[in-house]
């Protein structure tokens, strides 16, 4: 619980699973979920290093929190745009299989 390595290992597991989901899933929305897992893994690392790498005065380093906040905002923007694109692809090509939807134009 008070070990930095525990958090880093959880983040490593989440990151590996996210990469696995991104490369093996064929549904566009499932790929998006893999990306969310990767972003969460990065965020755990930011917050963990901010907690364990304290300033000289013994306060926790809040810069990591700001980075985590920005990552969460970016994830929200990315999810909104990605879902708009996926729904557009579904309307135009009637599939969201990322292997089939490979052409930029109909």
């Amino acid at each position: 619980m008070d070990q930095l390595n525990n958090y880093l290992f959880v983040a490593a597991i989440l990151f590996s699973l996210g990469v696995f989901g991104v490369v093996t899933r064929r549904n566009g929305i499932a790929v998006l979920m893999g990306v969310e897992l990767i972003l969460n893994a990065a965020n755990i690392n930011f917050i963990a290093f901010s907690r364990f790498g304290a300033t000289a005065a013994g306060n926790i380093n809040l810069d990591g929190h700001v980075f985590g906040l920005l990552v969460i905002v970016l994830a929200a923007a990315e999810a909104a745009v990605a879902l708009a694109i996926i729904i557009n692809i579904y309307n135009n090509m009637n599939t969201i299989n990322v292997d089939e939807a490979s052409s930029l134009k109909q």
Partner: peptide, 20 residues
Amino acid sequence: WLTRPAVEPIGTTAGVGTLL
């Protein structure tokens, strides 16, 4: 990893807001 012991803060909201 270079870690340093820290004291638990009462709340982080004010600090994050100031940094932002």
